[in-house]
Amino acid sequence: MSIFIALPLIGVFIESFYSTQPVFETVDVQSCTPGFTGQTCTTETKSRPRFDANGAPIVATSFIGVQAYRDLLQPDAVVRAFGPDGGGLWALLSIDFYAALRFTVTFTLITLPLVIGFGLVVALAVNSVTRKLRGLVIFAALLPFIITPVIGALSIRWLFIGDGILTAAIRAIFNSNISMFAQGWTIELLMLTYRVWHVAPFAFVVFYAGLQTVDQDTLESAIVDGASRWERLRCVIVPHLMPLIVFVALIHLMDSYRVFEEVVGFSSQAHRISLQFLTFNFLTPDQTGNRAITRAAASSMLTMVGIVVLLVPLITHAWRTQRGRR
């Protein structure tokens, strides 16, 4: 495990400081055009890539320090944005990296309570229906979770695209001529909806399993004490499920921090991108077939920093409980 994961990580770290580019040379090119009295000659300096004996371009790797990080973070632009008449936050969010960071963070924070809430409500609802229906509900709920994420996003997109039936329905209800894929916020709304649709089943299944182990005696004594349905939920069931809620929240944090498939599925790259998509975009060859590997490495390292920030409190907590157990 450490070889196949840690080694590439070290590689990425080193790569982010080096740049591999074709070697260019500057040559003076004299071009002459025949004129009336003689030749008119102009000399200009051109830079062109150098080729080796086989005709392949020579590449050289050079140390560029934190240049790649600078390109991503653009500290000058940040300072300018918050300076006098810089545009403040809006100017900041027009830089790719910050836009991606903003989207990733808000996406994570908005979907988290929705997923847990939906999961809990569905689990409670399923728990109170007859046993015969449970199989069907679980089957139906598992489908969106198991489905290929890109395809799940696409299937929702196809309901809305063009004159899709749901767009038509929205138009009929609100009597407005809205197009879901023309502006950023509607796409973002669809992405949030998709993620809740996709992950809530997971929360539901976990909570449902937890509900089977609720202590019936505690519930009964709560009833004897005159607790209402809501009080029983708040004071008995939710505390019992608390470790599971923390678990689901944790998994959801990790998973939605690397949101990626939504951007592909909804083709939202013109409006909304995520941190992982940023790296993906650098790694995809551009028109000339070059991949911006150095920048990709830098943005990967910055994404990693986010993960570490996310996980440090968790690991220290686990370490404390582990030490307490012995």
């Binding site: 495990m1 450490s2 994961i5 080694l7 590439p8 990580l9 590689g11 990425v12 790569e15 990790m254 921090y257 690397r258 990626f260 941190l275 992982q276 790296t279 993906f280 790694l283 991949r291 590997i293 990709a296 490495a297 990967s300 994404t303 990693m304 993960i307 996310l310 996980l311 968790l314 690991i315 686990a318 370490w319 582990q322």
Partner: peptide
């Protein structure tokens, strides 16, 4: 074993693009 499990947790949280960035040039 505890530290290996914690390492596994960190690696589970790792965005896949980071690993791909490491593997692609190789």
């Amino acid at each position: 074993a505890f530290w290996i499990l914690m390492l596994a947790l960190v690696f589970r949280a790792l965005p896949h693009s980071v690993l791909v960035t490491g593997y692609l040039p190789m």
